[in-house]
């Protein structure tokens, strides 16, 4: 008994630093957000009066919020498959031990070392309507200029391209590591059985890679929900809210409109959505994942 207590004390001592950080920077803000969301607040963020579910009701009546929700869904459907397919293709191409692949591995991962700010600057130049590389090339081949960041229908696509470009490096690295971890006797077995090419990819490689694909999927979806930097740097949610995503909308309500409690309600809803989707992924998708 005494021994157990001693052990517990020791364990607590080691856990304390992490626990304090968690309490101060995760749990406390989370609880505060939940509390704020059922109150009204003044411009300084102080609680003024209890308002029940008013903030939530207003939220679902808000057109801008509904637009940002729709944008976020579109953004997820563009960036998640885009990132995974691209990084998977790159990983498959460079996973062989062929000579010279090291160079490509470096090139494919270098975006990991670039900050959102730098990437956004770079892509803002690329997307520039008159001097940008993309439009210059389009015009060279007789195409028309595209308003990459100014056209309401195109802006979300442009933002997605930048996001894919930013995230592919990390996903690529994870998937490459996954491919490398697959025991080579599985491939030898396939070679002898005559299972090759597309069949081998579908029946052998992808199922064995599934834990890594699943991880990349969950991370990409969560990241997409939380995207902020690129939008803040490149479009500020525009034009006409066409790239206004959930987190950006929260940011605007807090730091532009000083509407704290309304933003808090959005934060809670976002938390619920992300939790539900993650649970859903674990329930449905993870059934098809085989851990070795």
């Amino acid at each position: 008994m005494r021994r157990t207590r001693y052990h517990l004390l020791g364990a607590a001592a080691f856990l304390l630093p992490a626990l304090l950080i968690f309490l101060a920077f995760t749990l406390y803000p989370f609880v505060l957000t939940c509390v704020q969301s059922v109150f009204t607040t003044n411009a300084k963020g102080d609680l003024v009066g209890f308002s029940g579910l008013d903030n939530y009701i207003r939220l679902f009546q808000s057109t801008i919020y509904r637009i940002s929700l729709k944008n976020t869904i579109v953004y997820i459907f563009l960036t998640v498959p885009g990132t995974i397919v691209l990084s998977l293709a790159m990983a498959l191409l460079t996973s062989s031990g062929r000579k010279g692949m090291g160079i490509f591995r470096t090139i494919f991962t270098f975006t990991m070392g670039i900050s959102v700010a730098a990437a956004s600057m770079f892509w803002t130049f690329m997307f520039h309507p008159t001097m940008g590389l993309l439009n210059t090339v389009l015009e060279m081949f007789g195409g028309e200029r595209v308003g990459w960041l100014t056209d309401m229908d195109v802006a979300i696509l442009s933002i997605s391209i930048v996001t894919i470009w930013m995230n592919t490096g990390y996903c690529y690295l994870i998937l490459l590591g996954g491919l490398k971890s697959i025991d080579k006797t599985y491939y030898e077995c396939s070679d002898i059985a005559g299972v090759g090419g597309w069949q081998r990819l579908r029946k052998v490689t992808l199922p064995l890679l599934s834990p890594f694909l699943f991880y990349v999927l969950v991370i990409s979806v969560v990241n997409a929900f939380q995207s902020f930097g690129v939008i803040d740097m490149m479009t500020h949610g525009g034009p006409a809210n066409s790239t206004n995503l959930l987190v950006y909308s929260i940011y605007e309500d807090v730091f532009v409109n000083y509407n704290y409690s309304f933003a808090a309600a959005q934060g809670v809803v976002l938390f619920v959505i992300v939790t539900l989707i993650s649970l859903l992924q674990m329930k449905i998708v993870e059934r098809r994942v085989t851990y070795q």
Binding site: D183, E188, T290, Y291, Q292
Partner: peptide, 13 residues
């Protein structure tokens, strides 16, 4: 020909 491997190479999925 066919081959039996030391680690069996059975597909876990």
């Amino acid at each position: 020909l066919s081959m039996v491997f030391q680690n069996y190479a059975l597909f876990p999925h």
